[in-house]
Every structure is written in C-alpha cells, then in structure tokens.
Simulated scan of single mutants.
Amino acid sequence: MKIRTLLLAASLIFPALGAARAADVEKPDLTIGVGGKPLLYYLPLTLAERLGYFKDEGLNVEINDFGGGAKSLQALIGGSVDAVTGAYEHTIRMQQKRQDIRAVIDLGRYPGIVVAVRKDEADKIKSIADLKGAKIGVTAPGSSTYILMQYLFAKAGLKPDDASFIGVGSGASSVAAMQKGEIDAISHLDPVISKLESLDAIKILVDTRTTEGTETLFGGMNPAAVLYFKESFIKANPKTVQALTNAFYRTLKWLEKATPEQVAATVPEEYWLGDKALYMKAFEASRQAYSTDGNIDEASMKSALNLITATDPEIEASAIDLSKTFDGSFLSKVKTP
C-alpha cells in the first residue's frame, strides 16, 4: 500500500512540475529546424528529444527536418522555425548579411565531416587536387559538407567550379548515389560514411571526426553543430532559450558517459541504416567530435572564421564581431537535475 501511495503521489507531482516549468517559459511550444536529423552530426538533438529532456524543461518541441543545413537556416530567417541546430559558421555568414544570429551552446567540437573517393577511383584520385572535374556528393549545396569542400579546394589551389557538387541527401540516398557510381567522391557524415566503409565502397582522404584529423586540417578545434537563434528571439524569450540550453547541456553530459549500445537503443531504428552494429561503430568513430561543455572559445571562433574567409571572398574578417556569434550567458546559468 505504501508503494502504491508513493507511486500515486509521484504521478501527481511530476506532471505538476512539468506544468510549472511550462508556465515559466515564454514560449513552451516551439519549432526547431535541422538539416539531416538522422546524421550523427545532429545526434544531441535526437537524444534530447528521445530522452525527454525538452519535456522536463516544460517545452513541447516540434522538429522540422530539412534537406540540408542551409535550408534550415533559411527557415529561421523566414520565420517558420524558432531555432536551429545547425553549423556554427552560419552565425558568422549571416552577420555579413546584417542578420543577427547567435549560438548559445556548442554541440560539436569538430565538423565530423569525411571526404572520401569511390574505391574504383582511388587509384586516380589520391588527393583533393585530383578532384578537379569530379562529381562530388554533398548533403545539400550551401551546407557544411559543401563549405568544407570549398575550404579544401581553396587550400589545394582549385576554384569552386572546378568540380560538380551534387546534393545527395542525408540518408540511404547518399549511400545509393555512391554505389550506383553517380558521384566520384563524397563529403558527408556518419552513419553514411561508416556504412560506405562497411561496403568497401570508399577510400578516405580527409577525416574531421577525430581530434587528430581536425587539428591536422585546421590547427585546432573547429566548432560544428550548435543551437542558434535570431537575437530578437533571444531577447524576447530568455527563459525559453535557457530551458533549451539546459536540455542540450544535460544531453551532452549524458552523451559523454553513454555506451554505443545506449545510444543505438535511444535513437529511432531507421537511423541504423539497417545495421545496428554498424551504427554503434559509426557513433564510436564520431564520438570525439561532440562537445563536453558546450562552450566555444575565441580560438575556435577564429578557426571557423578562417574557414569561411578562405572560401568566400565576400566575407571580410575585419567586419565580423565574433563576440556576437556566441552568447555564453545561458550556458553559465545551466542547472542540471
């Protein structure tokens, strides 16, 4: 009887707590945009949703999945989503366009992007410079997978139009494009890359899933996926932004200790691309890429700016105020259960 009484009391208390938190935030019902939710690049978003951390903060979050990061950014600018989990570089790029977009928490320390060539082309394409004239698959034109290729092209002395870039999506369609020979190379993320590796379909040229690979390319960390908003939304809804920051920070701490089995058991089965063991392997390959504290330091901001200025002549480094790309005030007030 005592146990039953305690359970009944709990069933009454916890919904009440959730309702209290919902009443405390300005916008309990909100929409987050993302460009390729099944990708491990955006794993913290799926985990926060599936682990119930949004609801614990009194939030009812709807997630809109777009074809690529550039499209989710467009949705934010157009007002059809309230926030985006997307590439940090968007906050820099939009400042040049006089759009005040700010990140509040870093989800990925490294891009996690891999550039690989089709196995039967590997004898001819041994470096980035050899990709001149090739057909290269990216998640979507303008996305982070495309931007990284532009950076690599610039470093190799190639022009942006020295190859054809083809949007291949973020799931099985990208695997199929490589298998069918529709593309010669690919700039993509896990689990797609690990799936292609398991099929012995590719040879890797650049790997930013790891500390070593990222430092070799950039000379340090290079922030990837973040949670960002319009500055106007942050000012109007500080409690809502704090609640989302709390949920994502809690997710990062869960992820820091989670086993591959726990991660695979939490995400939807369709994320496995038909192979649970492969998904776990892919997570392990990308594990170093996730942030553990959510912060972006000045050196990482400058690294991201260097990537952009190397690929886009319209971006003037002197005109960018990096302090306006990341608002760490919410991270400093995070309280976890």
Rank of each mutant, 00 (worst) to 15 (best):
A129Y: 01
T309W: 09
A10P: 00
R50Q: 15
D161M: 12
T292Q: 12
K333N: 12
F248T: 04
F54W: 05
G213F: 02
A154S: 13
G274N: 03
D200N: 14
V175W: 01
A9G: 12
I147T: 14
V168S: 08
E212C: 04
Q242H: 07
D24M: 13
T309Q: 09
N60G: 04
A277N: 14
D275H: 10
G86H: 00
T210K: 07
M280C: 09
Y53N: 06
I136E: 05
G36P: 06
G67D: 12
A23W: 11
A103P: 08
P268W: 12
A304G: 11
Q242R: 10
K281W: 06
V267L: 07
A265G: 13
L39Y: 02
F66Q: 07
R209D: 02
L199T: 02
K195N: 12
H90Q: 13
V115I: 12
I166V: 14
R93Q: 13
S194I: 05
G69V: 06
D106V: 07
T85M: 08
G294F: 05
S318C: 04
V334E: 01
S332K: 15
K239T: 05
A177G: 08
V192R: 03
D106C: 15
P111S: 12
L17A: 13
P260H: 03
P111A: 12
V104I: 13
G213I: 01
Y249P: 00
Y151P: 03
A177R: 03
E215F: 12
F66R: 10
G169I: 08
A282H: 09
A310K: 14
R250P: 05
I3W: 11
T251K: 07
E298K: 14
L12I: 15
L227A: 02
I204P: 00
R93H: 11
L39E: 13
P337R: 09
Y146G: 00
G18M: 11
N237T: 06
S187T: 04
S303M: 10
I234T: 05
D200C: 04
D120I: 07
L30D: 00
F248Q: 00
F330C: 04
A304W: 02
V267R: 01
P141T: 09
K135R: 15
Q242N: 07
V114Y: 01
F153D: 07
V84F: 02
Y41R: 08
L17Q: 13
V175N: 01
L8H: 10
I105H: 01
A22H: 11
I125K: 10
A154H: 06
A201M: 13
S291Y: 07
Y110C: 05
L51H: 10
L217H: 00
P337Y: 06
V104A: 00
I320V: 11
L205Y: 08
K230D: 10
T251G: 07
A22T: 11
